[in-house]
Amino acid sequence: MSDEQAGRILSWTNDPSKPGFTPLPGAIDAHCHVFGPMAQFPFSAKAKYLPRDAGAEALFALRDHLGFSRNVIVQASCHGIDNAATLHAIAASGGRARGVAVVDPAIGDAELDRLHAGGMRGVRFNFLKRLVDDAPKDKFIAVSQRIARLGWHVVVYFEADILEELRPFLAAIPVPVVIDHMGRPDVSQGPEGADMRAFRALLDSRDDIWTKVTCPDRLDPKGAPYDDFVRAVRPLVADYPDRILWGTDWPHPNMQDDIPDDGALVDVIPRIAPTPELQRKLLVDNPMRLYWPEEM
Rank of each mutant, 00 (worst) to 15 (best):
L115W: 00
S93C: 09
L115C: 06
V103S: 11
T86S: 15
L115T: 00
L115D: 03
R96K: 12
H79F: 08
D104N: 15
L112K: 08
Q75N: 02
I107A: 05
S77P: 08
R96P: 12
D109V: 09
A97M: 05
I81N: 14
V72T: 10
D113W: 00
D109S: 14
I73E: 06
H116F: 15
A84F: 00
R98F: 14
V100D: 12
V103H: 06
V102Q: 02
G95F: 13
A91D: 15
A92F: 08
A89H: 11
A106F: 06
G99T: 03
H116E: 14
G108M: 05
A76C: 11
S93F: 04
P105T: 10
A91K: 12
H116V: 09
H116L: 10
G94D: 10
A101W: 05
L87Y: 05
H79M: 03
V72D: 04
L87N: 06
A92K: 12
H79Q: 15
L87P: 06
A85W: 05
A85E: 05
S77F: 01
T86K: 01
A84Y: 00
D104I: 09
A76E: 00
T86D: 03
P105R: 04
S77T: 05
L87T: 10
N83I: 02
G99S: 07
I81S: 14
A97W: 05
V102D: 00
A106Y: 03
V100L: 12
A101E: 08
E111K: 13
D109E: 12
V100M: 14
P105C: 10
A76G: 09
G99E: 02
L115Q: 02
G99M: 02
P105F: 06
G108D: 15
V72E: 01
A110W: 04
L115N: 04
C78K: 00
L115F: 00
E111I: 09
D82W: 03
A106Q: 12
A110S: 15
A106N: 13
Q75P: 07
V102A: 07
A101K: 04
A89W: 06
A85D: 07
I81Q: 08
G108H: 11
A110Y: 03
Q75I: 01
G80C: 02
C78G: 05
I107Y: 04
R114W: 01
A101Q: 09
A110E: 15
A92E: 14
D109Q: 11
L112Y: 11
H79G: 12
L112D: 07
A85L: 06
A91L: 09
D109M: 09
V102T: 11
I73V: 12
L87G: 14
P105Q: 05
A110P: 11
H88M: 05
T86Y: 00
